[in-house]
Amino acid sequence: MDLWLEWARGPLFRIAIAFLILGLVRHVAIAVFEIAWAVRRAGDKNIPYRKLARATLAWLVPAGKLGHRPLYGLTTLAFHVSIVIVPLFLGGHIALWARATDLAWPAIPNLLADVLTVIATAAAVLLVIERIAARGPQMLSRFSDYAFPLLIAVVFGSGFLAMHPALSPVAFRPALLVHALGANLILIFIPFSKLSHVILMPLTHLISEVAWHFPPHAGSEVGLALGKENEPV
């Protein structure tokens, strides 16, 4: 058990974090090329920075959505805030980083972490329920759309149990092992799945903004390029 734990926290975590970082860098790099390509082809070379910032911000702070679909908006906001803050600023995690790299940064109080963890777990479960309940999303959903929130719920739940062994029905080390393995799984999946929206969200907006700015006569130019300029479109 201890060996498994050491493995999950050591080599496996290194693989996961490296894959996460390199994978996200890869997404950004490819997106940059895509944007360059899109800009080169676009008729309107202006990049609407203000509009982009607004769109991204609107996604980050779903104030509008709060009014539109209050329950969903609230759940998703709480969920996202929690799952960003707790893994990065939990004291125990920072202690692990410090042990491995001598890097450390301020931690949030354990009590706040506990509250956020409970919120994240509950919100993840709630999101799945909402997805099942609402007809539109249900039709569009794939397996992964249910699996990821549940995986996140498992990771946060087991993390909470590891933090509070006195309250836990399972032993400390199994709880910690589930927590570590699940977390590594998520890290590895981020660049591979819809979870890549952590980095791609603003870039997607940028690409779609730029790529669809074709000049008015774009259609006839396509014909020109294809050598079919005289044929009717």
Partner: peptide, 22 residues
């Protein structure tokens, strides 16, 4: 971009494995 997409993926997979096994 198809080539870079494919090969960057295998390259980072190799790199990540190496990070774990160093």
């Amino acid at each position: 971009l198809a080539g870079p997409r494919r090969y960057s993926l295998v390259a980072i997979a190799g790199a990540s494995l190496a990070v774990g096994l160093l």
